[in-house]
Amino acid sequence: MKRCNAQVDIGRRQFLRGTSVSAAGVAAATMARPAKAVPAAARVDYPSTKLANIADLEVNVPFDVAYPDGDAPGVLLKLGTPVEGGAGPDGDVVGFTTVCPHKGFPMSYSSERRTFNCPGHYSVFDAEKGGQQVWGQATQNLPQYMLRVEANGDIYAEGVDELLYGRLSNVL
């Protein structure tokens, strides 16, 4: 029943802060078409996707991935020092989209500054501070992956904490 297990994995949902958001997520999941009078932003069901194994990562070298699907490029980073929100045994593995949430330009990673930099309009995001926009035009901090690391070092992405550029649902 491999298929069923996969379904369970796909159905793994994260309920995070934002009470109205979570409630609407439940409604969306249990009814084909929600009939609530006051719709609110709803969570989506994220796939649990293996992106890499810890052994694949070198400290401060971005590892190209895509999540939640092939049209959504991103990177995994092993920062070498633990950060808030970092995954893995050393608490230092993070993953981010590399598409700028302002106008959708692909960003580059500065290993010296450990920031993502957008050539479109000069926005800068801090990889060590949860993708906080250091400076720039985006009205979101950088969407970050929710990661789970297995005992064998396999790194799974299981959610994204902000809306990705260019899609009105993170999972299409």
Partner: peptide, 13 residues
């Protein structure tokens, strides 16, 4: 952690 809205879907116009 930086502030995140945890909004992953928006109503479509």
């Amino acid at each position: 952690m930086a502030y995140k809205r945890h909004i992953d879907r928006l109503p479509i116009i």
